[in-house]
């Protein structure tokens, strides 16, 4: 599991991190009790200031998605509000719709578009 940050994006890095972690927790990819990396580690690995990652963690904590404890680090909260399966499917369909529209605008055929998605999904 990885988290990505685009430093050229208009979305602030802390919000990018928050969104990705919230999605993973909501979809059940990160189970309750899963340890998140320490703030300093994630900040160093992403080349960001520690305050940026700390803010993302703080926001997740205020949403009740993670719990931070001194000397125990940050873990995914028990009973964190997960997304229902139908909601996961709806979001996926929405993202696919946007991607398909972009592929059509670029004049890319279906096979090429699917191949690009498959490349991104490969481990």
């Amino acid at each position: 599991m990885i988290v990505e940050v685009d430093t050229d994006s208009a979305v602030p890095p802390y919000e990018q991190i928050r969104q990705q972690l919230a999605t993973m927790i909501g979809a059940g990819v990160l189970d309750a009790g899963t340890h998140l990396p320490p703030i300093r580690q994630l900040a160093a690995d992403l080349g960001l200031a520690t305050n940026t990652v700390a803010r993302a963690y703080r926001e997740l904590e205020s949403e009740g998605l993670v719990v931070s404890r001194v000397r125990h680090g940050t873990t995914v909260a028990e009973g964190a509000p997960g997304l229902p399966r139908a909601e996961v499917r709806r979001r996926l369909a929405e993202a696919a719709h946007t991607y398909a529209a972009t592929a059509r605008q670029l004049g890319v055929d279906a096979n090429e578009a699917v191949a690009a998605v498959r490349r991104e999904l490969e481990p």
Partner: peptide
Amino acid sequence: TYGRRRAASLVPR
């Protein structure tokens, strides 16, 4: 070195 899009593992070291 960092790539264009910065990516990091979520596994604590």
